[in-house]
Design a protein around this nucleic acid. Structure first.
Lengths: 344, 344
DNA sequence: GTCTTTCATGGGAATGTTCCCAAAAATGGG
DNA sequence: CCCATTTTTGGGAACATTCCCATGAAAGAC
């Protein structure tokens, strides 16, 4: 027996519906809709008009199925509430949109587990390419290598994987850190501490190198105690600051791995009535929006944030268009710029 | 002539590949993969093992095509770089993920045009439901009514459309504004100004009502000049503050539609050496992360941000599961809480 | 008028999966 | 050992679209 209630189920408008109403074949409707040249002008207009009237929308699922492409690119970011990654996403979206691609955004919450789950989501949704900035926990890259095996291009940005040979977009972290420390030294600071991020992240290693280079260049003695790695959990910043303050030979400046960290450092210092920058100067990295609002204004190394997103998206789109054999693994390094404010 | 190079084209692993390798039918493979009960335990294990080995991933496009569902929900936000919407998204993603749905995020950039384009994207990708907070420009809702016609549920949050009868999630804006103004008056302020957002947004209307109610309750005279609407472009805040300061009878407190606005108000006041809160107190709305970092700390009305996202996603998931006839258009109103800091 | 060329259209396979129906195999009761 | 029942499997339609091949019509050349 037939289930008559089935008919109540909402029915999607398809090209077949349009074809039937006009008494033509679905092939012709398809051609009219996709702008194929060999369809009579009059027919095309009739199709377009009726499609409009019927609220017809092309079904990307079936198109994607045929073309083996979803016209979608995925982006996975470890963090979301500060301004850095949203701005990167906006830049990437701009480029993607211009090329007819849409963005699926996922948020790994700095968790390796979630990142792996996110990559599954991306595969399930047949993304044509993936933009990713890894979590602080990610040291195994098997979940990302799957993409390469499947021929889906990947581009890393900001937090990159060293062992994978794919395009990457970063800023000149070494140079940026160098200029920040150089600036502090020029201001007369002799003992510059560096509160760095997780040691496994490439970006942190590079900034560490820039820090050391600046000290060396200025013939300042390099003190191991003044370089600390922390896990980016802002709640633990206070401990590290306290460590610095407990040293026999206290630092007179603290360079922080990013702006939120620097701001937290400042909060701790202010609580202890330590003057900024007279007693201890503070410098951050990335010029978040907050940094100009607080007091004193935070000196920081500006990154071209939206540009990172734009370049990464462009590299990915280039890869998508190319054959696998022609993939290139260039690394684009963008310039940073020191923004001087009152914290130094 | 056959194009032999065609064979080089990457081939997606399908259930047919698995079936052939095991010498069974694709139906059985499908059943094994989806966890259908009527498949031999041994067969299931063989399938699962081989699928794992071959890096097989289910093709959601074809599944979506059959099920007429993409297991994806869309979310459109007008703004992205401040902490409010990202936090809402995180809340929504949490709920969606738990129900097996993924999120496609789009960013309308406060532009009606872009919002319309975004809704097209959502339709193209066959989202099963839509979460949206409209732009400041949106006054025509035809692009959203299409979803209703197609049977795709919508839930509004924060910035809602009054004329559409669908579920909405907001905070008690009237009460929130009331408590903010009440607080200022209790602190001895007699002339409280309100720098409101665009008059067409429901959320702004409601906060305006709360403001007026608080004045009335305290038998303060209601001065039209003290209530100004602005377009949320932070660059124009200075003009409005200057207007207030130019009045014969200046305000002694400014209540702002949101935290970024309040912070900008404070910046302008500080530039003019006006003391906060002694000369003019400032109160914001929504307790963004920045608000506790600046000086003086901003008094503000806290909203349960992530909860807005969670509730909205839950309402949407409920709708998705229900038949169209059973759709309910409840409006959930969440509570706000006044956070007192030093700006008042 | 016939033949060739161009233009416009139709038919049907293919994309990867699910799901229904039927068939085969295994199990059990007498 | 046979029939009934249950378990497991296979075949094929369906989803909405694209794209190739074929067909019909119109147009132009001789």
């Amino acid at each position: 027996m037939k289930d008559y209630f089935c008919d109540m189920k909402k029915h999607q408008i398809t090209i077949v519906d349009i074809a039937q109403k006009l008494g033509i074949s679905k092939s012709t409707v398809s051609r009219a809709l996709t702008g194929h040249p060999s369809v009579h002008q009059q027919t095309r207009e009739r199709v377009l008009k009726l499609a409009e009237e019927m609220d017809y929308e092309r079904n990307m699922l079936s198109i994607g199925l045929i073309k083996n492409s979803s016209l979608t690119i995925g982006i996975i970011v470890p963090e979301f509430t500060r301004s850095f990654f949203p701005k990167v996403i906006i830049g990437a979206q701009e480029k993607a949109k211009a090329a007819g691609y849409n963005l699926i955004i996922c948020h790994s919450e700095e968790s390796y587990e979630t990142e792996v789950a996110n990559t599954k989501v991306m595969l399930l949704h047949q993304v044509d390419g993936l933009l990713i900035s890894i979590t602080k926990e990610t040291t195994n890259f098997e979940h990302l290598k799957v993409f390469q095996r499947k021929g889906i291009p990947i581009v890393f940005f900001n937090r990159v994987c060293e062992e994978m040979v794919v395009p990457k977009v970063i800023v000149d972290d070494e140079e940026g850190a160098f200029s920040a420390v150089q600036h502090l030294i020029k201001r007369g600071k002799k003992r510059v501490a560096f509160l760095n991020g997780p040691a496994n992240l490439h970006v942190c290693k590079k900034r560490g190198e820039g820090y050391k280079n600046a000290l060396q260049r200025n013939k300042l003695q390099w003190d191991e105690q003044l370089l600390r790695h922390y896990d980016l959990d802002l709640n633990t910043v206070e401990e590290h600051v306290n460590f610095f303050l407990g040293l026999q030979d206290k630092p007179d400046a603290i360079f922080a791995i990013n702006d939120p960290t620097a701001i937290e450092v400042m909060r701790v210092l202010k609580k202890k009535q330590i003057r900024i920058p007279e007693d201890i100067a503070v410098v951050g990295f990335s010029n978040d929006m907050v940094s100009s609002l607080i007091e004193p204004g935070l000196t920081t190394v500006e990154q071209p944030v939206a540009e990172i997103g734009r370049v990464a998206a462009q590299l990915l789109l280039d890869q998508i268009k190319r054959n696998i054999e022609d993939w290139k693994a260039q690394t684009v390094i963008l310039k940073t710029k020191l923004i001087q404010r009152d914290s130094s």
